[in-house]
Each structure stands twice: as C-alpha cells, then as structure tokens.
Design a protein around this nucleic acid. Structure first.
Lengths: 218, 218
DNA sequence: AAAAATTTTTAGATTAGACTAAATGGTATA
DNA sequence: TATACCATTTAGTCTAATCTAAAAATTTTT
C-alpha cells in the first residue's frame, strides 16, 4: 500500500518517463513536484525498496512493471474523478485538477468500480486523456500537436496536454474545446506561432507553446 | 487549516462531548480513536493552540465555538458523502463508513456545495443522522431509543447510533431499516432484552445493546 | 585530460504524529 | 490523613517526509 506522497512521486515519474521514453533524472522529478533533489533521492530509495522503481545511483530511475500498474491505477482514479466532477457536479474543466489530485488517493476498490459504473464506463476524461481500465489497459486516439499540422488542414481537437486553469481558461476564451474544429490558416516561421480558425468562426493567433499543447486528429 | 489527524481527533472529541455533555477525558479519546493517552495529550495541546479546544491540565477538554463549527463541517462532509455513496453509487448502508471516513477530509468548498446540490440538499444521511448545512445548522427529529419504549407501543425507526458493518448487517438480517415499524411485544426484566415485531412481520428478540442503538419516534 | 560546472547523494535537522516508560496529579479507600 | 490506585503528562524514541549544506560523482568545457 502506497502513501499519498509515494503515489504522487510515482505518478510524476511515470508521466516523465512516458514523455521522454528514457530514464528519469532526480532534478526533473524535483522540478515537476516543486521539491528538492535531496527529497527526491530519499523517495526514490523508498520506492525502489518497494519494487516500484528500478534505480542506479547517479543514473536516473525507471518505472518497473509493478510500478507501471500502480501508476495506471492512480491515473485511472484521477481521470474518473475528473469526469465525475465535470459530468455530474458541473465543474468547468479548469476547476477539476486540484480536487481530483486529492480524490485520486482515496483507497477503495469498490468505490472506483461503482464510480466507473455510475459514469457509464467513460473512455476519456474531460481533457481528452484516456482512462485506463481495471487492468491498466487503455486506447489513446491517434493524435498530433497542432504545431505539427500543415497550413490548409482542418483537424479536430482530441486532447490538451496542460491541465492548468490558466491554459484551460485561455482555451475557453478563444472558443476551443475537445471536439472543436481547427483550420490552420498560416504558420509564422519567426516564432512558430500560427493563425488558426476555430469552428469556422473566430480567427486567432496562437503561440508555439499553445499549439504544442493542443492535440488533434483528422 | 486542519490536518487529517487533527480533523479526526476533533470529530471524536465533539461526538464524545455531545454524548456526555461534560468535558472529555484523555482516556475516553484514546479509547475511541484506538490510540494511546500520551498521543492524545500531544494532540490536545496542538488543537488548544489553534483555539479549537479549551483545556486545563488533568481536567479534560471542551470544544470551543470555533471547534464546534469546524467539527460540524467535517460531519457535514461525512454525511453528504455517505448519502452520495448510498443514493448514487448503490452502496449498502454498512459499506459506507470507512470510505466516508476518507472522503470527509477532501478540502474543497466548491465540491461540497456541488455535491449537496447534486443530492438535492438531503437533510438526513443513510443512518438517519441529520446533515448540518453550510452554517452548521441542523434539525434532528425527536427520538428515543427502543429500550426506553413501553410494551404495546408501535414506533418508527428514525436513526441508528452505531455505524459498524456488524451492527448494520444484523439489522438487515432482522429486517430493520430507517422507516421500519417496530411494535414492542415484551420486555425481559432479567437482561433488558425485548421481543419486538418488525413491519407486522418477523418477531424477534433483541438484546439491550441493540435496543439502545435503534432510535425511534411515534 | 584536467579543470570547471552541474547533478546527485549524503549528512544532519525539522515537523507531525505516533509510541513506551517513567513521573506526577487526583481520587478513593482504609 | 496517609496510602494505593488510576489518569494524565512528560521525556525520550521512531518513522515519513521534508529541508539545507556539504560532499561526491558525472558531464561539459577548455
């Protein structure tokens, strides 16, 4: 049984290792969790001792198979709660993250099974991210960042890669949501920003950073 | 802001002081929380420092007005979550306590407001206990234990004073639930047990302990 | 390849919350 | 009223999780 802190570390490390595909550095973990490298080293040792991570001094960590399964269960809980908050309690998609961060640590297999059933077995959360099932299986839709799309294409928003209120409120403002249609009008070589039209209505410029965090499909 | 442990102590102390009406002893707290007197003394000091309890060495503790308000908010959350689990997630009334014990510590005023709304502002939880509102107000139905009812009377079950799975499963077995009709057939002077008929159907003997934990109204 | 810079680990402290054992206060009894 | 007993508090230890400062390992630069 993992503590709250252990689960938070595991989740962060799992996400980092998924992004990079490589072993994860102490400093990278410290940065994403806003803690210090020394604290990370301590926790790495504890999680290695539990068989959740594999670790060699100075060489970074990898998530073990056991760790991967545990991480996916925490992610499952997080995304189910986010779905509950939006679908049933009428939260906006920018209000759910912090609450789900707390709810994901509740220990009750029955609760999660019943919540899943109550929500009619959702496959994706409000940010478009796939919800793993009880066995950790999930299928993600084929998707690419807007930043990699050619001028002239029309695409559909599938997910967002940043869950911060600031980013999500900005997306609300420009009329973007999961399922919105985006047409690429122009790309600016200078700073990588793009001109796009959303749902055949508003035409806006989005920065490189924004276009990298909106993922789309044809 | 109180920690999980602080909230648990406060809730236990509040309940004890409501039951007895007097100041609460260190050992009584240790007993209900399954911890040791020394730990309780530590926590009492911490909560006194925060103005939640008032305390004189060797004289027991009382809950301050500030503490009462905080306790009622934790109780509100606990009972709303229990209601959610039974009404929406189809938990049995004997399955909710431990999960609600965890959920009650989630910090999010918005969440609780929305949950309350989603449940249509329930006034009582699945065990018949009143749910305090945002201001800590609640109204409990006038009620007495079955043990105090005279032979011949017919009464309605309003609440149960023990939330343990063992007790609640026993009540299920003898066909008792909130709203059930109980007719007092006989009282045994020897051990205080009673013969009662439930919903004009089953006739059973219940022990003194059981009859003290079922509360009823006319 | 040596020096410099950076990253990571170790050592030692801190806080919350728990414990045991010992000391002290309060109460009941002879 | 003195003693014995029980309740409570204090003192000291432990673990999880954090921190800072210093030491060690690795990587980068010259």
């Amino acid at each position: 049984m993992l503590s709250f802190a252990e689960e938070n570390y595991l989740k962060a490390i799992y996400h980092l290792s998924e992004q990079t595909g490589e072993s994860v550095s102490t400093n990278a973990i410290a940065d994403t969790l806003n803690t210090k490298a020394a604290s990370v080293t301590d926790m790495i040792k504890r999680l290695s001792g539990k068989g959740i991570l594999s670790y060699q001094k100075y060489k970074g960590v990898q998530v073990s198979e056991k760790g991967r399964k545990a991480a996916l269960q925490v992610i499952r809980k997080h995304r189910l709660w986010e779905t509950f908050l939006v679908e049933k309690l009428k939260f906006n998609w920018d209000e759910v993250h912090d609450v789900a961060e707390q709810l994901e640590h509740i220990k009750s297999p029955l609760l999660i099974r019943r919540l899943d059933e109550f929500l009619a077995y959702p496959k994706y959360d409000p940010h478009g991210d796939p919800i793993p099932d009880e066995n950790g299986e999930y299928k993600s839709k084929p998707q690419v960042p807007v930043s990699s799309c050619d001028v002239g294409r029309s695409v559909i928003v599938v997910s967002v890669q940043d869950d911060s209120p600031e980013f999500l409120q900005y997306l609300d403002k420009i009329g973007t949501y999961i399922g919105a249609k985006i047409r690429i009008l122009d790309k600016v070589g200078f700073d990588g920003s793009m001109e796009v039209q959303i749902d055949n209505k508003k035409t806006v410029f989005i920065s490189r950073e924004v276009s990298e965090n909106i993922w789309v499909t044809d």
